[in-house]
Design a protein around this nucleic acid. Structure first.
Lengths: 261, 261
DNA sequence: GGATAAACTGCCAGTTACTGGCATAATACC
DNA sequence: GGTATTATGCCAGTAACTGGCAGTTTATCC
């Protein structure tokens, strides 16, 4: 067992249990969902109601302050049932992000590689976002805002991001036929792809914070794409190559760094 | 309050409490510690005993399986006291990494920037590692091995790494006199520095896994340095630029990716 | 050296996330 | 309409963590 990449069983609901491994949030169905067995539709409804209610309550009352009992009382399911849908309080809070990660992973999975890898990964992200429902962007923005002010969710977010990255690298290994342990660049590509996603998303949040979130989807894609494209230029960053005049002089204490050993 | 960067109060022991924010593991004293007030030395001893014992017990009996009561019984302190030294079970397990992060951050803090930033960050890492005690490399290797097989610790690790990155970027902003929101490259530099650290460390662990961990310190520095230097080459990765002949043919299911929208 | 102040420690009782087991109820299948 | 499947609820339990207070140890001041 090389690692513990997220499982991703069929979809939603009662399934595996493990304590804190990668979440398995999925929800791949959007339009096809009317053609589902009645029971499945009910489960899906519960699952969404849990995520939506949780997000709303956490935003209003705070993540730590809002107890799981509060949530399940509101949704009117038992605690035990909650844990058959989500494996932790963090997971239900970050459900929207879980959907994105799943979509991204499955875009990369269907990818056939020719040409430079990094732009391909950028396009996969765009396709993934476009594949999500119209309501998604709003939920995701709210989710990330909540996470920004909640330490436990920031940690959880970092964890799922790392998991996703591991999955991407693994898939790229297969597709390119190389072992990431032999070619340094492969794993670094994974790092940089996720770095771009993180950074682009941060800019997106800031942009949408002021103007209302009209069409978040396209803005998000633009920002993340911009981050991807900025990578080569970032490598050579030095004081001399800065655009804007930097304020010289006071370096905040600490003289030039003396050698340690 | 822009974010919740780790506090890093003086050193060790009973102090702040918050639930899950950035850890504050420090232990900056090594040789000077004999010249400490008696009480401080005692605290330091307890703190180290907790970390060492925890690491040993977790490695032998598993992180989840070993309970906090087991630990405090062995060390012979009360549970309440434990939480005055470490703010979570995860933190005590990853204490060695906490020390590294603190050392890295303080190296960067004393940095005066001239020339390309990335090589400077690479050297800071080297200096930080060299500044840690001789025992440290062994503890760190054990810590990371434990984390590799423990989901909760992988998540925690991802969290602290993100926190460190945020701190680095913040410090670079100050030193360069730019706002990372205005210059994309600044934050991406942070992403890539941490990416190199992560990746280099991974290689180090693999290298030291086979041959015993003779002098881990220098090997670690070498591997991380190598990862830093490989960054520019990684950006252009494409099937054509791969060194080794890639196995063609079977792309594991999934035909060429059809456009989604 | 002894008294006062400060800091560290232990105990207790409580909250909350999370889990296994089993009985019950709802749905699918025939 | 009867039966197998599967989701749900309840119960009791564990383990991480926290606040409060009392007791003890160390620093400080005289």
């Amino acid at each position: 067992m090389p690692s513990l990449a997220p499982v991703g069983n069929g979809f939603s609901g009662p399934g595996a249990h493990r304590r804190y491994a990668g979440p398995m949030t999925v929800e791949p169905l959007r339009n096809e969902e009317s053609a589902l067995p009645l029971r499945e539709r009910k489960k899906l409804r519960t699952r969404r109601l849990l995520a939506d209610t949780a997000l709303r309550m956490f935003l209003e009352g705070g993540f730590e302050e809002t107890t799981l009992d509060d949530l399940v009382d509101t949704v009117e399911v038992s605690v035990r049932t909650f844990f058959r849908y989500y494996s932790s309080k963090e997971e239900v809070a970050m459900a929207a992000e879980g959907e994105l990660w799943e979509a991204y992973a499955s875009e990369v999975a269907r990818l056939r590689i020719s040409g430079p890898v990094l732009p391909l990964l950028r396009d996969c992200y765009a396709d993934a976002v476009r594949g999500l429902s119209g309501d998604w962007a709003r939920r995701y923005l709210a989710t990330r805002k909540l996470a920004a002010r909640t330490p436990a969710l920031r940690v959880y977010h970092a964890g799922t991001t790392q998991d996703l990255q591991a999955r991407l690298v693994e898939m790229l290994e297969d597709k390119l036929g190389v072992d990431s342990r032999e070619d340094v660049r492969l794993r670094l590509i994974g790092e940089m792809a996720l770095a771009s996603v993180r950074y682009g998303t941060k800019n997106w949040m800031r942009a949408l914070g002021h103007r209302g979130g009209a069409d978040g989807t396209e803005t998000l894609i633009t920002e993340v794409g911009r981050a991807f494209d900025a990578l080569p230029g970032a490598l050579s960053l030095s004081p001399d190559t800065l655009d804007r005049p930097r304020r010289h002089g006071d370096q905040k204490g600490a003289p030039t760094r003396p050698p340690r050993g």
